[in-house]
């Protein structure tokens, strides 16, 4: 596993994303982290935003029950569940994920959000935008874009420790 980005650069990207959200999403927005990878990103964004907005609603969604491959793979366990203790009605819902790749997870996330309420807008934030989309889905706010072979894996570590960063195998290029 090769380190691509260190914790300092990662923090810079989170700050930039939080600024974009503040500039573009008005004051009636909420953040929804897409489990599992989106949780650490949404928590980092929430930390950045907490003193800059009057009220910040943060929730988590588990898309396992909405996946299109649910009958084709062993179930995700344990199911961590969706945890949203506020209404999504007329809000700008900002979905937050770690890596946007095929777009299938976000399709499932949008379906779930629509089942939970009727938001005014849905926006998508991703820390890493990876090429390889299988559905017509794109992020509104992107931390960085990576061109990476389908066979290689991108991993984000963001625990507040020395190892924080973005990791992957060889043959990558940044655009």
């Amino acid at each position: 596993m090769k380190k691509y980005l260190d914790s300092e650069e990662l923090n810079k990207i989170i700050k930039q994303l939080s600024v974009k959200i503040l500039q573009n999403c008005g004051d009636n927005f909420c953040l929804l982290g897409v489990r599992k990878g989106g949780v650490k990103v949404v928590d980092a964004l929430a930390k950045e935003l907490q003193n800059k907005t009057d009220k910040l609603d943060v929730g988590y969604i588990d898309v396992s029950l909405y996946r299109d491959d649910i009958h084709k793979r062993l179930p995700d366990v344990p199911l961590e569940g969706t945890d949203i203790n506020f209404s999504l009605e007329n809000k700008t819902v900002i979905l937050v994920d770690e890596v946007l790749f095929t777009g299938r997870t976000i399709r499932a996330a949008i379906d779930q959000v629509m089942a939970l309420g009727r938001p005014r807008l849905i926006r998508l934030v991703t820390l890493v935008n990876r090429h390889g989309r299988e559905l017509p889905i794109q992020a509104d706010y992107v931390g960085l874009t990576i061109e990476e072979s389908h066979t290689n894996k991108i991993e984000v570590i963001y625990n507040g420790g020395e190892d924080d960063g973005i990791y992957f195998t060889n043959n990558s290029q940044i655009s």
């Binding site: 588990d62 396992s64 029950l65 909405y66 649910i70 179930p75 366990v77 344990p78 199911l79 961590e80 569940g81 969706t82 945890d83 379906d111 779930q112 089942a115 939970l116 309420g117």
Partner: peptide, 19 residues
């Protein structure tokens, strides 16, 4: 653990998921 994750579905206004 899975049951704990699924309990929330029954608290929604639309109590149905497509699993």
């Amino acid at each position: 653990d899975t049951a704990e994750g699924l309990k929330e579905v029954s608290t929604r206004s639309i109590k149905k998921v497509p699993a």
